[in-house]
């Protein structure tokens, strides 16, 4: 379908083309058999679609809103029940129990490995190094006395 027809198709089908566009479309259609054929198909399809226009649709009976509300409440209840049902389902409970056991086992092994690291205690070299770095208790006592004297003065 050529652009000039495609651009004006919706208005053409709705019968709302402006006079100027109408002339342009008709002039093109006179010389284009393909567009004439395609447009005829589109027009036929448009007529078929319009057959769906509501005819004597039933009116909502009184109390419709109340029934909608009840349905909403039922859906809400159903969804909360399904959450509980999923939680209480035996298969789900088994999975939770298995996961908890796995977690406990991992935690236990982690704690045991930490304990074994500390049970050996620091090496003699480490102890000596710490002692050398730290001021002796004698030195610290002198330092404290000097501070007190200067404060007193």
């Amino acid at each position: 379908m050529h652009q000039v027809i495609q651009d004006n198709l919706e208005e053409y089908l709705a019968g709302s083309l402006r006079a100027e566009d109408q002339r342009q479309v008709e002039s093109h259609l006179e010389g284009c058999a393909d567009c004439r054929r395609d447009l005829a198909s589109m027009r036929e399809m448009s007529g078929w679609l319009q057959s769906l226009r509501g005819e004597q649709a039933p009116e909502p009976a009184s109390g419709f809103y109340a029934r909608v509300s009840r349905r909403i409440a039922a859906v809400e209840e159903e969804s909360s029940r399904s959450i509980w049902a999923a939680l209480l389902e035996p298969a789900f409970a088994r999975r939770v129990a298995f996961a908890s056991l796995l977690l406990l086992a991992s935690l236990g092994s982690f704690l045991v490995s930490r304990e074994s690291d500390y049970s050996q205690g620091p090496t003699p070299e480490l102890v000596l190094a710490v002692e050398n770095e730290a001021p002796s208790s004698l030195d610290s006592r002198d330092h404290m006395l000097a501070t007190l004297v200067s404060y007193h003065k």
């Binding site: 769906l52 226009r53 509501g54 005819e55 004597q56 649709a57 039933p58 009116e59 909502p60 419709f64 809103y65 909608v68």
Partner: peptide, 17 residues
């Protein structure tokens, strides 16, 4: 409720169509 009452007739018509 106002939304339901505003569009219920239209919705019925679409469904029936």
């Amino acid at each position: 409720r106002e939304i339901v009452e505003r569009y219920q007739t239209k919705v019925f018509s679409i469904i029936h169509g």
